[in-house]
């Protein structure tokens, strides 16, 4: 039964990814812009163009191209980047850790800020504190992440320059890392000087990405908490002598978190989408930044690879959310 559900899930994921691959493959080939034209100097002969086109397999039909590409993907070969002339998979995996670290830090910040605001707002419901939280989250939500990025650059990069506004790590530093997960490795290797430098670079883009999500969590979780706080078992907990904070943390939070969790999963995928522009804004060397370069250069194999990796990420996040939902909800677990 469980195995069957798991297999169905796996199949759905595969179909989703295939669909994404088809759509991206077609769209970037139908859209105007020619990667070959961008590679050759002006005045190249038609013969040169045709030769290069054949070299990258772009002379075949879209259907033929797709299946050539797909058979490569199945074998783990995502092709060669046209603009960087390197293996796509290698390029993507080289950049992915930076984006994952940024998105994770942003998610942790969003949950921490949003969760705290929600708990505070629910505890102080009906007071000026709750109104203040509502106003703040309204403002955080109505400003998109890239605009927050600009605001932060102006505030803490230009007016009061306390944080680094560009890159992932200070270039003069010696990096002893074996993988691209710099932040994780710096902590494991107890090189907290590097951790600090990495965080100083990461803080502003992470806040920019986190603020809208924090606002959503704050509003939704606060609403759920307020509903749960009127329920009988919460009243019973108050009669037992527990304080409002204890009641919220011990009785209400877990049940109120369920509806929020689903939405946070969806919103987290938006957050990862947001890394594309925000990474560009802060010249952060992640996958999103590379995606923009790939689009500008019409680097078809690279775009396909990046999009597919993003799609895989989204599918995995949804899977994780479903699993956490079942873990938190005993009725689902036994049902």
């Amino acid at each position: 039964m469980l195995l069957q559900r798991f297999l169905i899930r796996l199949l759905t994921m595969a179909i989703t990814l295939f669909g994404v691959a088809v759509v991206v493959f077609i769209v970037i080939r139908v859209a105007p812009g020619d990667p070959i034209a961008m590679m050759l100097p002006p005045g190249a002969t038609d013969a040169d163009i045709a030769r290069l086109r054949a070299l990258y397999g772009l002379d075949k039909t879209i259907v033929q191209q797709f299946f050539i590409w797909l058979s490569g993907v199945v074998r783990g070969d995502f092709g060669t980047s046209i603009s960087l002339r390197q293996d796509v998979l290698g390029l993507v995996f080289n950049r992915l850790p930076a984006t994952l670290e940024l998105a994770s830090v942003a998610l942790v910040m969003a949950v921490a800020i949003g969760g705290t605001m929600a708990i505070l707002g629910a505890r102080e419901r009906g007071t000026a504190v709750e109104a203040g939280i509502d106003i703040a989250s309204g403002a955080a939500l109505s400003i998109p992440d890239f605009l927050w990025g600009l605001v932060l650059i102006l505030l803490f990069g230009v007016l009061v320059p306390v944080f680094d506004i560009s890159g992932r790590v200070s270039p003069q530093l010696d990096l002893p890392f074996a993988t691209q997960f710099y932040l994780f490795e710096s902590i494991v290797r107890l090189r907290f000087d590097l951790t600090r430098d990495l965080l100083a670079h990461m803080l502003m883009p992470a806040i920019a990405l986190a603020l809208p999500l924090a606002a959503i969590i704050s509003q939704l979780l606060k609403q759920s908490l307020k509903e749960v706080l009127d329920l009988d078992y919460v009243v019973l907990a108050r009669v037992k002598g527990f304080s409002e904070t204890q009641v919220i943390l011990r009785e209400a939070l877990k049940n109120a978190a369920l509806p929020t969790l689903t939405l946070v999963g969806v919103q987290f995928t938006f957050l990862i989408g947001g890394t594309v522009i925000v990474e560009r804004l802060f010249s952060y060397e992640g996958l999103g930044n590379m995606a923009i370069d790939a689009v500008i250069n019409r680097d078809l194999p690279l775009i396909q690879g990046i999009v597919l990796v993003f799609a895989l990420l989204f599918v995995l996040i949804n899977l994780a959310v479903d699993m956490m939902y079942a873990l938190l909800n005993p009725r689902l677990r036994h049902g």
Binding site: Y233, L236, E251, N255
Partner: peptide
């Protein structure tokens, strides 16, 4: 039915 916390 409603006086016990469903998740504890």
């Amino acid at each position: 039915l409603t006086a016990l916390n469903p998740s504890r």
